[in-house]
């Protein structure tokens, strides 16, 4: 582990820095004094057994949940306890574990409404189809996730895997700096999983990504760095190779 002084010496500052994050639900401590930082450009995987606090951690970072104590600094600004709409405006986007789209709108509309949260959000008197910048943004986000051919379908009519990718498209349309993916391949077929991995790789080239995932081979393949959660605490933190060789991680999690 490097000391804070070393880190300050290194050129880029962390894009996300979390200090002493603690969340208690009544008597249950879901997260206990978590310290965590992510550098720009990383693909950071968060792994850990069920109940390790991964989702709680995501909920804190994206403003869904207010932590009991601790500080979350994103891109130089303290965002601790800010509501999710402000966190989104600061540049953190999230795709959900449970598919969470607008089912009765078209695929295109789902993405455009996300793009629109950055521009023309309060425009009341012009037809929303007439904003070319929004249409282009939506098209490019759909193109990135491979859903452009399905743009005019109702989101509810997409397959499960396509809906998960639409989730990512919606997140991308908000032009995030940090993208949080909560089990993006859950419930997908092998082929769909493969496509989604390729997709994450492609978008990782100009984004920082936080990814919660259960599929270990996938994590080892994708992540540049891995953090292991266990009982609400950070058990280990390092490169995929370091994590694979870590005896404590093997004990609690990687038992094969």
């Amino acid at each position: 582990m490097r000391s804070p002084a070393d880190r300050r010496g290194a050129a880029p500052a962390p894009i996300l820095q979390i200090e002493g994050l603690t969340v208690r639900f009544g008597g249950l401590t879901a997260l206990n004094d978590v310290n965590f930082s992510v550098m720009p450009g990383e693909v950071r995987a968060i792994i850990g057994p069920n109940g390790a606090g991964k989702s709680t951690f995501f909920n804190c970072v994206t403003g869904v949940l207010r932590p009991t104590s601790g500080r979350i600094v994103f891109d130089g600004k303290n965002i601790t306890g800010r509501p999710s709409n402000e966190v989104s405006q600061r540049g953190i986007a999230r795709s959900y574990q449970i598919t969470n789209i607008l089912p009765n709108a078209t695929v295109f509309e789902n993405v455009r409404v996300a793009a629109q949260s950055r521009r023309h959000a309060w425009s009341m008197l012009r037809d929303r189809g007439s904003f070319n910048d929004l249409n282009e943004k939506a098209e490019s986000a759909l193109n990135q996730v491979g859903l452009l051919p399905k743009a005019q379908e109702l989101a509810a009519n997409l397959s499960h895997g396509e809906q998960r990718n639409l989730e990512i498209g919606i997140a991308l349309a908000t032009e995030p700096k940090l993208l949080c993916l909560d089990e993006p391949t859950a419930g997908m077929s092998a082929a769909e999983t493969h496509d989604t991995i390729e997709l994450v790789r492609r978008i990782a080239s100009n984004l920082t990504i936080l990814i919660v995932e259960h599929d270990m081979p996938l994590v080892m393949e994708l992540a540049t760095r891995i953090t292991v959660f266990h009982y609400g605490e950070v058990l280990a933190d390092g490169s995929p190779a370091e994590i694979r060789d870590n005896s404590r991680v093997q004990e609690v999690y990687l038992k094969t």
């Binding site: 994206t62 869904v64 999230r94 009765n104 709108a105 409404v113 629109q116 950055r118």
Partner: peptide
């Protein structure tokens, strides 16, 4: 309008509408 779409988005999924900003 874009504003009208936000209203419909709130109707369909309020938490998600907040999450996209």
């Amino acid at each position: 309008s874009p504003f009208g779409m936000v209203l419909q988005s709130i109707r369909e999924n309020e938490a998600r509408t907040r999450a996209i900003g």
